[in-house]
Nucleic acid binder design. Structure first.
Lengths: 237, 237
DNA sequence: ACAGAAAAGATTGCATACGATTTTTGCGAC
DNA sequence: GTCGCAAAAATCGTATGCAATCTTTTCTGT
């Protein structure tokens, strides 16, 4: 069975749905924090921005709302999601449940080609950490998430892969809201350790390392309700 | 096809989103097999059937396509999903990964009220099994899935709950396509055993029973490619 | 009679229009 | 100055129209 056949969907995205393209761009913008949580995404604005009608802009926003990255309120519009501490906990609880299993599955399917892909991924991750500036920081955030997505793609379960896409994206939002430090610098070495375990086929070790990794990421969050959630809700804009 | 005509008395959906209501009805119809896999769901037809414009019918179909219950092809339309054996395996692999963990989480959160709800659920399940006729069989299928959804709701993680909704719905499709027997009769006693374990707070046992339960369901499937997948694909409609 | 081409019909993709709802603005009273 | 309320503007929900694409039927030549 082929492994790399799914790495990059060779489907001509030009012919693909335009709404999907807009969704992807918006998602990237949300994930690497060019769009702050709570930002309003009006259909008209999105439409003119991407030069499409409201119909297709609306479709893109609907997709994002399914992924939990956008919250829509009837007759009020769409906003970049503003996950509560409780939601944040649930995101990480879900990851703790799923990702160790994904690591195990991936360990059993690693090929040299995968190792090469991971190495490139980690190289890029390290490069962005070394760089300075907000742009590098954004790329670093994205690269850190991409490690987990790469792992999910290696695991070879499309359904779980999609779940992970959602969880990673939401994690990015959560970290943006409740993150204390850069988190990623320590995450990088953990990623490397996980890859080592995967490379040596040590599924159990990869799984355990992944669990700890997730714990570490969550431990870096400050999930105490800050000055009451009502205030935050009230001030949201 | 008559989906909408078996009217549930309108409910309060006036204030709710109409697209969502249509999605729910279509989903029910797919899950309990009033709509066979591969059936075409044209926007116009759905629209007239539910007495809405194509715009909102389209939105409902888009939602179902996100859940994996409907597959849309550009310029061709929407069809009730026709999961391949590989997809079927992935659905169950995902459930094996997630549901034991959900059982553990639920075991730690069971309240007397939950037990009552479960008992009622299992009663209903048993009642439909005893009855005869296609209508009872459909209700039985739905009730069987509802047990797992109830468990997910007790676990208290909204994200995982939504994942489970998708997985249960897709399982129903898979069973419709590849199921050998009724599966549910044996499933019922396993559900009861799981509830027992949950009631006694034995999380590990509940988790193990759940894993076996999923294995049993999958074991009842015949996932051999029948007369080649190409043929099935070619003839599908 | 059959294969292939052309036309007719059906269906989707997308834009736009209009009523409904929400938000903002303007203005007068306190 | 600020509070309340009504009008105006903005935004959303939905229906409908048109062009593009796909499917089916009809027609024609061999």
């Amino acid at each position: 069975m082929n492994i790399a056949d799914q790495t990059f969907p060779a489907v001509d995205s030009a012919n693909e749905d335009r709404a999907q393209a807009i969704r992807d761009q918006l998602r990237d913008a949300i994930v690497d924090r060019r769009l702050a949580p709570g930002t309003k995404l009006s259909e008209g604005e999105v439409g003119t921005l991407f030069d499409v009608s409201r119909t297709v802009a609306r479709a893109a926003l609907q997709m994002l709302s399914f992924e939990g990255l956008v919250r829509t309120e009837r007759n009020r519009g769409a906003f970049v999601a503003n996950p509560s501490p409780e939601e944040a906990r649930q995101v990480f609880a879900s990851r703790r449940l799923i990702e160790p299993g994904i690591a195990i599955a991936a360990a059993g399917r690693m090929t040299p080609a995968h190792v090469v892909a991971f190495k490139a991924q980690l190289d890029e991750e390290g490069r962005f950490i070394a760089e300075r500036g907000p742009s590098a920081r954004r790329s670093e955030i994205k690269a850190s998430g991409d490690f987990h997505l790469l792992l999910a793609s290696v695991a070879g379960n499309v359904i779980l892969q999609r779940f992970m896409e959602e969880l990673v994206a939401r994690s990015s939002l959560v970290i943006a809201l409740y993150g204390r430090s850069g988190v990623s610098s320590c995450g990088h070495s953990e990623h490397m350790n996980i890859l080592e375990a995967l490379e040596s086929g040590n599924a159990e070790r990869a799984s355990a390392l992944m669990l700890h990794h997730i714990d570490h990421i969550e431990a870096d969050l400050d999930l105490r309700v800050r000055s009451g959630p009502a205030l935050r809700q009230a001030l949201e804009f």
